[in-house]
């Protein structure tokens, strides 16, 4: 078996070490969409959306159900084809790069983590290292995998099969896999949806840490409080268009949130940090 495996790995890496991209400089635009229009079944789900994400920042995509958050993320990831407009990653249009090159530049966390076969957790996380196979960074695999599992607190069940985990545990394993990919652009679709309070905070702290380390992070969130506390900028989507974009204090206003979500809210400053807290107006 070992002989077979090593023979196969020699065969499949016979192309030699590939050229690796240089990570984008701090503050540089890592990901950019301009005049993006995406249609589904003839209906424009996104129209005229432009957004820039720089290295070192966390950008939250928020908006009501059906506003186009996930579609925007899919378009940024290269999954949803743009009817018009372009998405550029690392200064070149997405469509110009093959999947193997994109994988070195961006990692994507899907909304739902599925697995056809019961791989153990550690192997799932290790799948995140696949883009680096046959490159000089292959040697980092063990350390990176261990680090990603520790950061997401999944090391405790590293040997359990994926399908024996709870929804929240699966979500964290999927995040660990995405972190292990070590791509300079992270696209996360509702990473906190299945998580408890503690792990929601954990995930967004990880986002901040990745940004501090020089990654560009785009995260779809439902919880405006989390977005306000952790994002550098918030992009509010409304009916396929960008309703507002900017730092949390500028974007999260009673007028805008009330209009976009069709739910009156109060926006209060946090007593400690001063970051905006969004509270729905409830009639007793």
């Amino acid at each position: 078996m070992n002989v077979l495996t090593s023979l196969f790995s020699v065969l499949s890496s016979a192309r030699g070490p590939r050229e690796l991209p240089t990570p984008p400089a701090p503050g540089q635009v890592a990901l950019e969409a301009s005049e993006l229009r995406v249609t589904l079944g003839g209906r424009a789900v996104l129209d005229g959306v432009g957004i820039q994400v720089r290295t070192g920042e966390v950008v939250a995509l928020v908006g009501p159900n059906g506003a186009g958050k996930s579609t925007l993320l899919a378009a940024l990831a290269g999954d949803a084809a743009a009817a018009s407009g372009t998405v550029r990653i690392d200064e070149r249009p997405l469509a110009d790069r093959p999947a193997s090159e994109l994988a070195l530049r961006r990692a994507v966390l899907p909304q739902q983590a599925a697995l056809s076969f019961p791989f153990p957790v550690e192997e799932v996380v290790r799948m995140g290292r696949a883009p680096w196979a046959g490159t000089v960074r292959e040697g980092e695999d063990d350390a990176v995998v261990a680090e990603a599992m520790a950061a997401t607190e999944v090391a405790g069940f590293a040997r359990r099969p994926f399908d024996a985990l709870s929804g929240g545990e699966r979500a964290r394993v999927a995040l660990a896999r995405v972190l292990a990919q070590r791509a300079p652009v992270l696209l996360l679709d509702e990473p906190t949806a299945a998580l408890d309070l503690r792990h929601q905070e954990l995930v967004l702290r990880i986002c901040r840490e990745r940004a501090r380390a020089g990654d560009a992070v785009v995260v779809v969130l439902h919880d405006l409080g989390l977005a306000a506390a952790y994002a550098d900028r918030i992009a509010v989507l409304h009916e396929g268009r960008l309703a507002a974009e900017g730092p949390p204090r500028e974007v999260l206003t009673e007028e805008l949130i009330g209009r976009v979500y069709r739910q009156p809210v109060d926006v209060l400053p946090h007593p400690g940090t001063g970051s905006p807290l969004v509270v729905p107006r409830r009639h007793p």
């Binding site: 065969l11 193997s100 961006r106 696949a130």
Partner: peptide, 25 residues
């Protein structure tokens, strides 16, 4: 067949995640 084993592992994640990891699905 064995040359594609590693990519088949990734395909277990689903088509999109496999593509995100660089597989020409």
């Amino acid at each position: 067949a064995p040359l594609y084993a590693r990519r088949l592992d990734l395909l277990a994640l689903g088509e999109r995640p496999a593509r995100h990891l660089g597989v020409d699905v």
